[in-house]
Design a binder for these strands. Structure first.
Length: 786
RNA sequence: GGGGAAGUGGCGGAACGGUAGACGCAGCCGCCUCAAAAGCGGCCGGGCACACCCCAUGUGGGUUCGAUUCCCACCUUCCCUACCA
């Protein structure tokens, strides 16, 4: 049982409480249902806010983080959560990040961590790189300067090597929301097609392109390449060179967002021509802003007739549009009003003319392969994961640069590479790079003077494997023990926000597959068997935020309404996956409920009577039987919602309302009834997962020695759930014409006889012939007549 | 542009093909009280010739004996994603 580990940002509000309350209620339910539950908690403690506090207010990030952890742990305990704090971890502890570095080195050994130059988001004002999520509308989220593109040498993790497995693994994740799996599928973006190349006229260069629509290859009227493509310098003609370079320079610092979404399509002719490998026609080669250097080969074949983007570009720049696929059963249009992007039948396509698109794709791919000019290929939208950060408050990357040996990994026995304290943090550049005591070191291989890598790791690195560290939080021989992993993994139920649908949840899956390949974990290749996304909590119709001043704090709420009422309200307002609205009126309803529960039990404190829950009590009257039934309806709801992983405890709590109302009424009129005593003593055990404090207090006052949280949950009893009298609905042609009170188990014929006695039914059947009867036992009789 | 989720009383929601609106909030009436709060009891989708009956789960179709529920289209709202060749 696991909730996503929080960033220790400071104060918690009731929006956070929803997540912890749900996880805690489920963990407590599972325990009372007899499962052995591991329910740990920790801190995603590295990250920007701590460093920003240092920049803005001169506070030490470590101290800032520590004091936030102290406060947040207090608040999380205040919520009545039952975490195993002996397994608590904080990712900023050297004890933890030591293993971060160890894992980085293992990835490095396998060639899955590598350094290369790549275009990244750069904030010129803060002089540091920014993660994609820190760029809002093309601007830095802190200083709002427009973000630039820079080529920098960065560390990447080769997540793309796992693209196919990350995609395939999703199919087996039946306990994951379909929506989240879809988002991951889209993010991974696997496309199968053909990669082939064009020769360049008067040049030795070849230009490779990737396409999923090789059936449209005869419609190529130009090639479009990214300005960064290395072939550009080689092929551009002298008279065009200046213009091409000017164009490339104008785009160099533009972010991907600016180039693609905000700008119209632009391009410059290189002066060079490529030779079509099949038709041998000459096609012009253009440099454009809409081709991404980082995807596929960085060049595309331009087929204006059958691609919307190419159509737009060709129209704006006066390039020819050649239709080579026509819709089934119609002829080529002249001129095309818009790109025809669907499959069809090929025309003007050499040997392939007349073929349907699907067959042509296979045939053309085969021909190109025979010519040794191309092959089928798969491309992913997913890019390798950039994990370098020019930041202080993170895990140092354990690499040393030696003039003689080059890039040298820090040996395991030298770990951890400690993050130095007392480094001036100004917000300009990387603090570690300016700390000679940190940077200057000896080469671990040859002993010569060397320099350390000054980048730290993206904090998503830590959170991609933290769940395993809980299994052996103090182990110093390995990040986790294999035996513990075999015993506990994978995570049975994971709870967290959907904002991590592709980030944390994708990275973790990647890591876990890597661990599996190394033999460090066995069993399922997926770390999280089931996943649940809780919804947000709004206040005054808005997301809670300190800056807007609409935050409902934990401390005030606990002070005013109490923890149990808060927990009950959060579970009761909406199903947990939905967005809910915090209202003072709403929580006061749960305060009343807690009070009603107390008053219902209070007369029975220190009172002798039936206290065993092992057997159903005798219940001579209908009211008593209804009360016992209400107990078991609530038990059944709580159990079903847990086992099914639907977690709709809002429905369970509604049943508890009915239970307590029935108990209150009967407790007054028949305080000596064994059924009442049964209902009183059962109540604390049934509400224990949701309202742990009042449950424990009542349980003790009712004279029980052992904690209520160690009791087994009642099992729904079919005899108690059985109804004595049922309402049989009688329909004629699907419309309700009568309701008959009768005993359960009544047969179809007997029910029919009774139905015919009803005037409403008789009136509807007048002059009609009964054709069919539909009978649902104890529920309904539908008479079809006409 | 692409993908996804959701539309039920004044409000949050219940009903996983079989009595639509459980339960709660708000509101109204009553009891208790000198009074108020709290508590307790009752009413609470619309219409009507008011114990009957009719209409009603965004709109329009379909499947079914029967649809809030399943399928299709449309409308609205929200979320994600965005030139990925």
């Amino acid at each position: 049982m696991l909730e996503m580990l929080p960033y220790p940002s400071g104060d918690l509000h009731v929006g956070h409480a929803k997540n912890y309350t749900l996880g805690d209620a489920v963990a407590r339910m599972m325990r009372m249902l007899g499962y052995n539950v591991l329910h740990p908690m920790g801190w995603d403690a590295f990250g920007l806010p701590a460093e920003n506090a240092a920049i803005q207010r001169g506070i030490d990030p470590a101290q800032w983080t520590r004091s936030n952890i102290v406060n947040m742990q207090r608040q999380i305990r205040l919520m009545g959560t039952g975490y195993d704090w002996s397994r608590e971890i904080a990712t900023c502890d050297p004890e933890y990040y030591r293993w971060n570095q160890w894992l980085f080195l293992r990835l490095y050994e396998q060639g899955l961590a590598y350094k290369r130059e790549a275009p990244v988001n750069w904030c010129p004002n803060d002089r540091t790189v920014l993660a994609n999520e820190q760029v809002v509308d093309g601007r830095c989220w802190r200083c709002h300067s427009p973000v630039e593109r820079r080529n920098l040498s960065q560390w990447f993790l080769k997540i793309t090597a796992y693209g196919d497995r990350l995609l395939a693994g999703l199919d087996g994740l039946e306990g994951w929301p379909e929506r989240t799996k879809t988002m991951q599928r889209n993010w991974i973006g696997r496309s199968a097609g053909v990669q082939f190349s064009f020769a360049v006229e008067n040049s030795a260069a070849r230009i490779g392109v990737f396409t999923t629509r090789i059936d449209t290859v005869y419609g190529v009227t130009y090639l479009a390449i990214a300005p960064e493509h290395p072939v550009v310098a080689q092929i551009v003609t002298e008279e065009r060179r200046a213009e091409v370079e000017r164009f490339a320079a104008s785009l160099a610092s533009k972010s991907e967002l600016e180039r693609t979404s905000l700008m119209a399509k632009q391009g410059v002719f290189t002066g060079a021509h490529a030779i079509h490998p099949l038709s041998h026609e000459r096609v012009p080669i253009w440099v454009t802003n809409y081709v991404l250097a980082e995807y596929g080969t960085g060049a595309v074949m331009g087929v204006p007739a059958h691609d919307e983007r190419d159509f737009e570009f060709a129209r704006d720049f006066g390039l020819p549009i050649a239709q080579v696929v026509v819709p089934p059963g119609s002829a080529a249009e002249d001129p095309l009003e818009a790109a025809y992007v669907d499959d069809g039948r090929l025309v003007v396509s050499g040997d392939f003319t007349g073929m349907p698109s699907a067959r042509a794709r296979d045939a053309i791919a085969l021909r190109l392969a025979e010519m040794h000019a191309g092959e089928t290929a798969v491309n992913f939208r997913l890019r390798d994961w950039l994990v370098s950060r020019q930041r202080y408050w993170g895990t140092p990357i354990p690499i040393v640069y030696c003039e003689r040996c080059g890039e040298v990994p820090v040996p395991d026995e030298h770990l951890p590479v400690l993050l130095p304290a007392d480094v001036p943090i100004t917000g300009e550049g990387s603090p570690l790079a300016r700390d000679p005591a940190f940077v200057n070191t000896a080469c671990p291989r040859c002993g010569a003077p060397a320099t350390r890598e000054s980048d730290t790791m993206d904090t998503f690195f830590e959170s991609s494997w933290y769940y395993l560290r809980y299994l052996d939080p103090h182990g110093d021989a390995a990040p986790w023990g294999k035996a513990a992993a075999d015993r506990w993994m994978n995570v049975d139920q994971y709870i967290g926000g959907s904002e991590h649908a592709v980030l944390h949840l994708l990275y973790s899956r990647f890591f876990y597959k890597f661990f599996h390949d190394r033999g460090w974990v066995h069993g399922p290749e997926e770390p999280f068997a089931r996943l649940f996304h809780q919804g947000m909590v709004l206040y005054n119709g808005e997301k809670m935020s300190k800056s807007r001043g609409n935050v409902v704090g934990i401390d005030e709420t606990v002070e005013r309404q109490g923890v149990d009422a808060m927990r009950l309200f959060l579970l009761y307002v909406t199903p947990p996956e939905d967005t809910s609205e915090w209202t003072d009126e709403g929580i006061s309803g749960r305060v009343r409920f807690v009070n009603r529960v107390w008053r219902a039990c209070e007369p029975f404190f220190d009172r002798a009577g039936r206290t065993s829950l092992a057997e159903l009590p005798p219940a001579p009257s209908a009211a008593e039987r209804e009360l016992v039934r209400a107990v078991h309806v609530a038990v059944k709801s709580a159990t079903d919602e847990t086992i099914s992983r639907r977690f709709h405890f809002n429905a369970t709590i509604a049943k508890l309302d009915e239970y307590v109302n029935a108990l209150t009424a009967l407790g007054r009129t028949a305080p000596g009834s064994p059924a009442v005593h049964y209902a009183v003593h059962a109540l604390p055990t049934i509400i224990a997962p949701f309202a742990p404090h009042v449950a424990e207090e009542l349980w003790e006052r009712l004279g029980h020695a052992e904690s209520v949280h160690l009791q087994a949950y009642l099992q729904p009893d079919e005899r108690a759930l059985a109804l004595e009298e049922i309402t049989l609905v009688v329909q004629v042609n699907g419309k309700i014409r009568a309701r008959i009170q009768t005993s359960p188990g009544i047969g179809e014929d007997a029910a029919y006889e009774l139905a015919l006695e009803q005037s409403g039914v008789r009136a509807q059947l007048e002059g009609k012939q009964v054709r069919k009867r539909i009978f649902v036992a104890d529920k309904l009789l539908n008479i079809v007549a006409g």
